[in-house]
């Protein structure tokens, strides 16, 4: 579904991703782990054409992604939930969802409300006044409004209490079960491994592990990569 071939990224001469080649298959739920600066966010941003100077090939369903035009890749079905700043804080929850859904007619709002009832309950609340967990749920809901085939998430558990992290992971599981491919970049390994079937570990821009989540959990020297 999403294929990376020999992808390299460097910022100001400093290499961040080195010769990355991998394939994300339809319907998979994949986690990407790594220490700070390992290249996780760059890999996600490459996937939507948001990194200038990336070399190599990234293709989505056999067609190369459009570089420098995040919105065009989104319209093709690649959803991205960036880290942190992913909701429009000055707008109400309902208006956030309506902005997200303007390019995707077909009434997915009801589906989003069914999946996340809290968004309907908080419809008139300003998004900036929601809790961090609710903002994350809203960001997920907004992304679903675009009917993505694959959903890329950049550290959705950052800054959230453990109980809220479980809620977010449950939501992602439901999204994956409904047929959406999920790729999640995370630092919270234990919580994420409960969700994913496959894990990839990046270290200094290279893939050092790519296998089943259970295999990664059983690795005794796991923490040497972080």
């Amino acid at each position: 579904m999403l294929t990376y071939s020999n992808v390299n990224v460097s910022y100001g001469g400093l290499p961040v991703l080195k010769d990355i080649s991998l394939t994300i298959k339809e319907g998979e739920c994949v986690a990407i782990f790594g220490h700070n600066g390992a290249g996780k966010t760059s890999l996600l941003r490459c996937s939507v054409g948001d990194v200038e100077g990336a070399t190599g090939t990234i293709s989505y369903r056999g067609e190369p992604i459009v570089r420098g035009a995040v919105f065009m890749n989104s319209r093709r079905g690649i959803g991205l939930v960036p880290q942190g700043h992913n909701v429009f804080r000055q707008l109400t929850v309902r208006k956030n969802l309506s902005v997200a859904g303007l390019n995707s007619p077909g009434g997915t709002l009801e589906e989003v409300y069914r999946l996340f009832p809290v968004l309907e309950q908080r419809g008139n609340q300003i998004a900036g006044s929601l809790s961090g967990g609710q903002q994350q749920i809203l960001a997920l809901g907004m992304s679903l409004m675009t009917k993505p085939s694959i959903l890329l998430l950049d550290e959705p558990s950052t800054g959230l209490a453990p109980v809220i992290v479980n809620d977010v992971m449950d939501s992602l599981r439901q999204i994956n079960l409904r047929g959406t491919t999920v790729v999640i970049v995370e630092q919270n390994i234990p919580a994420t491994l409960k969700l994913v079937s496959r894990a990839i570990v990046l270290k200094a821009g290279r893939i050092v592990f790519d296998g089943a989540g259970g295999d990664l959990a059983r690795k005794e020297d796991l923490w040497a990569w972080f």
Binding site: V48, V70, L80, P82, F88, R89, L91, V99, N103
Partner: peptide, 24 residues
């Protein structure tokens, strides 16, 4: 109006806005 909401959204979080398929 709806276009104004899009303007506000684009101004506040451009990447998130583009990631929703909107041309900033």
């Amino acid at each position: 109006g709806p276009y104004g909401r899009a303007i506000t959204a684009m101004r506040d979080e451009e990447l998130a806005f583009s990631a929703l398929g909107r041309n900033a």
